[in-house]
């Protein structure tokens, strides 16, 4: 009897400790965050059904550290010619008329001490979906990845390293050479 009580106590203790550790490890991780946006823009409709390329709207992802949310004039490139009307499209047009920018809620937030450059990753042919998930199926965008340092490093250690080696072939062919992709100073400065 005494042994079984001890056993149960031990199991409870270990489980709760595990749960506490798990909870603590998720502090500041907002995986699954899917805030409501001022305009219910559907990536599923645009990127999925209509197959608009990601970089058409997020063009600065090619050149800048920010992917950029398209300015309203980019929306109006198409919507000035499309006749379909919904409440959300009305909101968009209203914004144009009132010359009032749209205040979106940022979904993917990195801390200030992390330098992330979209163009660097787009240039290395990392698909947008690798980090953002299947955006083309999302009616409302949610944070798919945990965006933790460990998650970044997973890719840096495998794909990043591979890319680096292939790119560095011209420079030197030492297979054991350390790679800058996992340097702290790659992202933290």
């Amino acid at each position: 009897m005494r042994a079984s009580v001890l056993l149960i106590a031990a199991v409870v203790a270990v489980t709760s400790a595990g749960l506490v550790a798990r909870t603590l490890a998720r502090v500041g991780v907002h995986q699954g965050y899917a805030p409501e946006q001022p305009i219910a823009f559907s990536h599923k409709l645009h990127a999925g059904d209509s197959k608009v390329p990601c970089l058409y709207c997020h063009s600065s992802a090619r050149t800048s550290r920010h992917a950029g949310i398209p300015s309203v004039n980019v929306c109006m490139n198409c919507h000035s010619m499309l006749t379909k009307q919904t409440v959300d499209i009305e909101r968009l047009k209203e914004a144009v008329q009132r010359r009032q920018p749209i205040v979106w809620t940022k979904v993917h937030n990195l801390p200030d001490f992390v330098y992330f450059n979209h163009s660097q990753h787009v240039g290395a042919n990392v698909a947008c979906q690798s980090c953002h998930g299947p955006v083309e199926t999302m009616a409302r965008v949610r944070q798919e990845a945990p965006l933790t340092m460990g998650w970044c490093l997973d890719c840096h250690r495998t794909r990043g390293a591979e890319l680096q080696r292939s790119r560095m072939a011209w420079a030197h062919a030492d297979p054991n050479a350390p790679l800058p992709v996992t340097d702290c100073g790659k992202c933290h400065y």
Partner: peptide, 19 residues
């Protein structure tokens, strides 16, 4: 906290945020 992102209304051609 909730963070907002406000794109330009009309983005000038020579200017890219972050560059």
């Amino acid at each position: 906290s909730v963070q907002k992102a406000i794109p330009m209304l009309n983005q000038p051609e020579q200017m890219t945020p972050g560059v």
